[in-house]
Design a protein around this nucleic acid. Structure first.
Lengths: 196, 196, 196, 196
DNA sequence: TATGAATGAGTTTTCATTCAT
DNA sequence: GATGAATGAAAACTCATTCAT
């Protein structure tokens, strides 16, 4: 088969695995369950990844990288130089996060699930660290401009991320409280949380 | 053995199970791993619960009930009638949550782990719902007093809870950013998040 | 406790074991199931027999000896000397068998089940052989008197016993076809089966 | 593997299971014992039946159906219309039963082992009832022709079947009394048992 | 002597992985 | 490359037996 169809198989498996992993935990998912959802045979899966663990790492990395992509989207790359730019950057980032939660609900839940420790390899771990850093940059900029609380930026990052993750979970669970307006209202609340 | 030591066995197993479940997921935990950590034989565990799943439900309920206990601690039972009482009630609740995160880190992580859906029974589910309601009451009181944002109270609850859970995870992971002061600073930030 | 109450325990356990063994097979019966039905603790059972296997042998022997007792009941001990005596002895034996089936249904089913069981010890096996011989004596007497078929007496014994066992099973199963008259009708049929 | 070898696996397991079940009882047989005798891995067995119990039901049904087949062999399908036809049908049936005992000794012993009650499912039970009916038909025909005893036909069936089962057991146990002549002699004895 | 909770070897069952087709 | 039946090591669960009370 052509390389195009190979990647179709890879994509199908990665998608299926993300779904079932995020529904039932990596350990709670059987390989046949993945292959079934992907519409391929078990053996096929093993032609692309050497083990379930390796597949889980691949899924993890893909999800994390996707998250990083959303996070960066439309970012100028330079730190905001004044309050207005900061506000704009903040809104843009929050909207990107909102889009990610809406478009990739499984990815966020899977990635944010603690307890990956057991099987994540070095590469996955390094990626995780790098992505987590990205979120902190905006907060540090806000502090430099004197707009945000002068606390440990890691503390603020953790809190903002906590709000976001919990909202995403509620969203994915189909909570009635999580319509489009809610995400905007939440944005304002988070801005208050950050502001001095 | 005496009935005292019977409950000692149950307690030992419940404690051990909470530890390993919160470290490695229910599905990722073997029964011998639990019984070993509890210092009892595998068979003993099955004399007290009919299956690993039943044990997981028992652990879940115990953790959730413990959380409810902490949440209630020192609560007058009546809704705060003025801004000062609200502020006091808020601080008390936050301090209780802080204490829970410090004293029962495994319980929080385990309970907040999504993906219990698969094995939680009716009783566990009902308990979860009841406890989740408790947190919302204070927020509704703040809204009635005109101090808190006039959004869907479920949205506010979700956000506050998200902050708390993420802080607790960081705390349990041994984050350097999470000393005692940090919990107080976080409290102020959350107050801002809630306030109009 | 007195020796009287010891034997009460032994009797209770032997009776209970016979019941459950005949219902569910020796291998299919758990020791707790026996002790529960007997109304004693598991540990108590092990004070009287060293193992489940030993208990099964005890049950087997008791049942087989009981069968022998019924078979002998009212037997003169001498071989029938004329047709009339033979007929009388035959009727007596059949009525004894009928009584056994009625009064000890579990014993017959259990004993007939275990014929070649792996766990029967030497003593149990010798007893079985001795009892089986008893039935054959009457048939040999009938052959000597020229009333019964001149076949291998073991063949005739086997057939008569087959009829009896199957009737007993039907009786125990509560078959509507097995009232008191039926046993008498069956006796006549068996007499025909034996007669030349 | 080809579908031919799939059914070879099923056949091998069913045969092996019949052997060990009839030797040692269903409860007394371990799954590895079955898979070893069948020459397959344990896991393979579970790819074909969901549990040991399900396998036992499959074995039971196969054996019972095989018995029904032998019983029917060469049967005209119509009830015998005169004494000569009855006699012929009787001989044919007995010879079929003899063949079954000789060719499928394990099947008979297994099926006739009482104590299946515990695990037989609805389908197995219905099949058993249907097959048991088949034997009764010939006896009813003999009664209509006035040749057989005018008793409850179920009583006669039970007796004849008892003779047959006990002979088969003796045969399987290697009894010296059970050569080919013996089966013919037994047939005459059974005819006498049935006749008025 | 009786008890029944605890034990751990043994059994049933599952499932990641292989490999013949 | 793709397939999915077969494999067997590892997991869940059972139960005969022991032993502290």
């Amino acid at each position: 088969m052509s390389s195009a169809s190979i990647s179709r198989t890879r994509t199908a498996v990665l998608d299926a695995a993300l779904q079932v992993f995020s529904e039932r935990t990596v350990a709670g998912t059987t390989v046949p369950a993945i292959s079934e959802r992907a519409g391929v045979a078990v053996g096929t899966l093993y032609r692309h990844w050497p083990s379930k663990e390796a597949l889980a790492n691949a899924v993890y990395r893909q999800a994390k990288e996707l998250f990083a992509e959303y996070l960066h989207r439309g970012a100028a790359g330079r730190a905001p130089a004044d309050p207005e730019q900061l506000r704009e950057a903040f809104e843009a980032m929050w909207d990107n996060l909102t889009a990610f939660a809406a478009e990739q609900p499984d990815a966020l839940v899977f990635v944010e699930h603690q307890q990956h420790a057991g099987y994540l390899d070095e590469e996955s771990r390094r990626l995780a660290e790098r992505v987590d850093q990205m979120g902190a940059d905006l907060i540090r900029a806000g502090q430099r401009l004197g707009l945000f609380r002068q606390t440990d930026p890691r503390l603020l990052t953790t809190m903002v991320f906590g709000v976001y993750v919990q909202l995403s979970k509620a969203h994915r669970a189909g909570s009635a409280a999580l319509d489009a307006d809610a995400w905007t209202e939440a944005r304002e609340a988070v801005w208050s949380l950050l502001s001095r």
